[in-house]
């Protein structure tokens, strides 16, 4: 089932087309990555999904219902973690969550329970009574997330939730994204950090200049540009290697042995996982392996190859 469907979505600012005829489907239970450089139209799309921006053309369906016509339904079922922090510094962490969850329509005991759960979830229970202005950047981000998830929305949208925070908080946030997903939420995650997207997202859309350029699992995206991986194995051995045996390993297309540099390069089909077999073969021949480096395509190279530019230009 599709939690979110976007049909021919377009947003113009004057002559400038920020989002250009975008078509997308986000299925239930996915962590859907939205990858693109700054200014690619990610936030514009997110803002339209969350009804903050009017749609110039096209439609957005949440759980099959048009969000423009069923805006209350949409707001109840979407949780937004905005790019810019949306918390009140003069209210305690608890009050912040209580306030936002109240806005989504929770009342009474349920409101209190959910607030406590959300605090627990982001690991801020022991700081509940403190004011966010004394929090670190990472803690503020976590509170920001808690405010968006207390009402248990079907779809959680996270717009660059890891910008400008320390690695520890970042890991914490990535883990909580996974946990939220395991608990049944569908998640849309936007970022221009391709490592993050690659790590946690089950399906990814690459956007640039407001256009959807490619979409699929990370394997599909990578295989769209190449089906070959390039493995560099530096070794130490007195005798020359038996490259013929390695060549016969399934998937291997080409083998090149640089005896002087003691470097073996193996080209292989990317989708076949044969690194173990290759290394086994070398070890059997009493070759000492110094390092292994697999130069497979990354999402960064996918983006670079497709658009000719870096993600962080």
């Amino acid at each position: 089932m599709n939690v979110l469907e976007i049909h021919e979505l377009t947003r113009k600012f004057g002559d400038f087309v920020a989002v250009d005829n975008m078509n997308l489907k986000v299925r239930e239970g996915e962590i859907f990555g939205f990858l693109g450089p700054n200014g690619a139209g990610k936030s514009t799309t997110i803002n339209m999904i969350s009804s903050l921006l009017r749609i110039t053309k096209g439609e957005i369906l949440l759980l099959g219902k048009n969000i423009t016509k069923h805006s209350r339904f949409a707001k109840m079922n979407i949780g937004i973690v905005p790019q810019d922090l949306a918390i009140y510094e003069e209210m305690t962490a608890y009050e912040n969550i209580y306030f936002f969850a109240g806005l989504y329509g929770l009342r009474g005991n349920e409101l209190k329970e959910r607030t406590a759960e959300a605090l627990e979830f982001v690991g801020l229970s022991d700081r509940a009574k403190e004011l966010p202005k004394n929090f670190s950047g990472g803690m503020k981000r976590r509170l920001n997330i808690a405010c968006a998830i207390a009402h248990k929305p079907k779809l959680i949208i996270m717009d660059e939730p890891t910008v400008g925070i320390d690695p520890q908080s970042r890991n914490y946030i990535l883990n909580s994204v996974r946990k939220l997903n395991e608990m049944g939420s569908t998640i849309i995650y936007t970022s221009h950090y391709m490592e993050e997207v690659e790590e946690i997202c089950s399906r990814i859309a690459i956007v640039d200049h407001g256009k959807l350029i490619a979409e699929g699992t990370k394997e599909q995206l990578k295989s769209s540009i190449t089906d070959t991986k390039d493995i560099w194995i530096s070794y130490k051995s007195e005798q020359p290697l038996d490259t013929e045996r390695i060549r016969q390993i399934p998937g291997v297309t080409q083998v090149l042995d640089d005896e002087q540099e003691q470097l073996l390069r193996v080209w292989s089909k990317a989708e076949i996982n044969n690194l173990n077999l290759i290394l086994q073969q070398l070890i059997q021949n009493q070759v000492e392996i110094r390092s292994v480096d697999e130069k497979a395509a990354t999402l960064e190279t996918v983006f670079l190859t497709l658009t000719g530019r870096n993600l962080r230009d």
Partner: peptide, 27 residues
């Protein structure tokens, strides 16, 4: 699709799918 970019000179990229190999897993 077509990607236009005017940030460094002007470039037009036309991307067309070919009947290459589909990845069996993950599909």
């Amino acid at each position: 699709t077509v990607i236009t970019d005017g940030s460094n000179g002007f470039s037009v990229i036309t991307l067309l799918p070919t009947g290459g190999q589909e990845v069996p897993h993950g599909a």
